[in-house]
Design a protein around this nucleic acid. Sequence first.
RNA 1: CGGGGCGUGGCGCAGUCCGGUAGCGCACCUGCUUUGGGAGCAGGGGGUCGCCGGUUCAAAUCCGGCCGCCCCGACCA
Length: 581
Amino acid sequence: MRLSTSFIPTLKEDPSDAEVVSHRVMLKGGMVRLLAAGLYSYLPFLWKSLLKAMQIIREEMNAIGGQEFHFPALNPIDLWDETGRNEDFGDDVFRLKDRKGRGMLLAPTHEEVVGDIARKEIRSYRNLPQIWYQIQTKFRDEPRPRSGILRTRQFIMKDSYTLDVSQEALDYGYDLHAKAYRRIFTRCGLRFFEARASSGLMGGTGSQEFLVEGASGEDRAVVCDSCGYAGNVEVAGTVWQMAHGEEAPVEEVHTPGQRTIEHVSTFLDIPAERLVKSLVYLDAEDEPVMFLVPGSHDLNEAKASSAVGSAVRPAEAEEVLKVMSAPAGFVGPVGAPDGLRIIADTSLEGLLDGATGANREDYHVVHMSLARDVKVHAFADLRTVLEGESCVVCGKPVRAITAIEMGHIFKLGTKYSEALGATFQDENEEEKPIVMGSYGIGVERIAAAAIETRADDDGITWPASIAPYHVFLLAVNMGDDEVVKAAETLYEEMVEAGLEVLYDDRDIRAGAKFNDADLLGLPLRVTMGRRALDKGVAEVLTRIDKVTTEVSIGETASFCREKIDAEIAGYNQRAVEVQDG
RNA sequence: CGGGGCGUGGCGCAGUCCGGUAGCGCACCUGCUUUGGGAGCAGGGGGUCGCCGGUUCAAAUCCGGCCGCCCCGACCA
């Protein structure tokens, strides 16, 4: 492709509205343009990369027996009422009416459509298993789109669905997907973590996220570099025990105005690790529940929610007062109202000498023994783990990371098939619900994560497998006929060798070309100028390390071809190594 | 939805406090010179200052309302 006739509108200055690396570079590199908040046009240069990522996804999905579909993005709303998810998604879904007034929505995911086909077509265990997938635009009216292409309101997703006869069969299909995902991300040149995750709105019995470490991500996870354990903070556990202390009579102490852990800790000279945070929450029915976590830790609301089995929200100040008859900042489990559910973090079990609110303004209690003084309803993992705590698998310290969620796989079970009546008849003529799994990959995030993790001060450094082109061919001076002729010949030879070449034949100054070449970040840059031509060479620069090699003109095409092939072969080799986890 | 920032030629910004000629750099057009890391000189085109209303002789500037975009939080497969 000739740059002189391409539409790759690079910018000279940094765009003002972009903070995260991938967003800035995509705008600057003429790859995306904003239409409205969370809605981007993908320009040809980015689209080529996305097409390559999608092709890798296709190959790997096909390799595990996936069949590619294309479902309607526009769905009748009553189908979503059948599963209850029209309500569950709330304002996150775009709704509209057709000309007859029928309620429709723009699908944020496709379990319902898959379930609808299944209930109409799948009759027998002989029809199973099935792996169905599509690569399609999804719509979600995000409350806050952000970070450029990382969280948008319209995005491309590879979504796949397994239909099986049993939980065991689902496990197999789920493992096939995990394997495919490892291969996909590795072939795309990404280093990822697999993290246990919360199923959230999807429901089901288990889920796992594929994360790429990166500061602009929205996910927090802990990873163990020793054994490879990783978990989203919503579910990750660590081995950590609060100091038990020694038993002593419980005692009220005057703590005027000391509401926060920090203040109380300083005021009483008790380390935060010995304080107990008492938090009043309300469940979905507005029934109160008190959570107890170590003063040194935060309550994790996702964990709190699963401990209660319902969504929870912090009680407002007035609600705290109403439930506890004491103001927020001074509430505690000692002498709490009868019947108040109290759920304590597992690290508090056996605590003999803790301090917390006294349920009386300006007073706290010390020497609280949990077993003696508190009626704990249940112990559960409630705390947000902290860096340096011990890995639940190997005991080594874990690391806390910020990460981009690339993919998420779910064991759904029979939630959707039961709601929709998608059943099959087994060998014993018994009618059973189909066991489902669902699996997603955010396609744009592949390109975004590659940029986020590999960009340098000058621009992108694409992995060869998803680079829009392999080579940036730079003719230094279009006014020099011999240079132009040599560049044209190189262009032809490289294309002939099967390379994808972006040929900068623009009649502009060399400096601008070099800067664009750095910015666009193709794996190889081939420079043809007077200097090189006189030596009978082309200068081949590998973008990732900026090392230049002089290669005789006649061998340049094959030299580049080998470089690109070697890099891609490296990813493929690594894919084999990591595919089984 | 709460908090903060911003909206002025295509892009990046100044001007707004203190009302009175819309300005700078880049980009764009023409000519000449240049040509290996975003050239120089000369000439030129392009802006209802986000929108609506108010105050005023006069509004980019003051007042009121609204809209949009970005960031933090809430939220979020």
